[in-house]
Computed example of a mutant assay.
Amino acid sequence: MQSPSSGDRFARADESDARFFSNHVLGEVEAICDRIGILNDGRLVATGTPGALRSDLDLGASIRVEVARVPDDLALEAMDGVESVAIQRSTVVASLADSTAKIEVISELDERTQVLDVVSETTSLERLFNTYTSSGREEPLAAGSGTDVPRMEAGR
């Protein structure tokens, strides 16, 4: 199927049925699919669940931590894996080089102030797609099998 406009028709399908479709609306793909294949120039370069594809590349992450009070001498930037920190009122936003630094940042904040809420933001499917299909890559990435996929001519 090319670019379905609604996931409703998939919701009615038997869960054991496999469905294959092509779609450029990546938010819709993630909402409907439990496994994704990414094609680049006719080659299957990656397959897996959205979570597995994110883990394979580990493009970093960010967290938003709402705290009761932001400590005056907060020095999260000095921690391994922390790329940058921004303070927005009572929220600490940390951009991380890899997702493993999340726990350390949250623990550090929890030792110094009361943590009220934590929101973990994952790499978007669009960023994953762009990384897997970026030019200059010689080999298929991560879980991709590198399987050649037959090209379809328009109108076939």
Rank of each mutant, 00 (worst) to 15 (best):
L39W: 00
P150I: 04
R156C: 05
A143Q: 13
A11T: 12
E66R: 14
T113C: 02
S145E: 13
S62G: 13
E126C: 09
E139P: 00
Q88G: 00
R54T: 07
R137Q: 13
S62K: 12
S22V: 15
L26Y: 05
S16H: 15
V67I: 05
R112C: 06
D17S: 14
R112M: 12
D41R: 12
D17A: 10
A101K: 11
D110S: 15
L26P: 04
E77H: 08
E28M: 10
S124M: 08
G81E: 08
V82T: 10
R151W: 03
V25R: 13
V82R: 09
P4T: 04
A143D: 11
A11K: 15
S107F: 02
L39F: 01
E153I: 09
S145M: 06
L128C: 07
T123E: 03
N23P: 00
S62Q: 14
L128E: 05
R156F: 00
T131E: 14
G136A: 10
I36W: 04
T113S: 03
S99P: 00
E15Q: 11
E153Q: 11
M1I: 09
S5R: 05
P140Y: 03
A61S: 15
R64D: 02
P140K: 03
P140D: 03
A46R: 09
A78L: 07
T47Q: 11
S55I: 04
E15K: 10
S135N: 12
A52T: 08
Q2K: 07
N23V: 06
D56A: 15
S84A: 15
R89K: 05
I38S: 00
L96H: 08
A78H: 07
T100A: 13
T47M: 13
A97M: 08
A86E: 15
R9C: 03
S3P: 00
R9Y: 05
L26V: 10
A86T: 14
N40G: 01
D148Y: 02
V105C: 04
F21Q: 12
V115L: 01
V25C: 07
A68E: 13
I38D: 00
D73C: 05
G60I: 03
S95I: 01
V70C: 10
M1V: 11
D148K: 04
D148V: 06
A61C: 12
A61H: 12
D8G: 07
E28C: 12
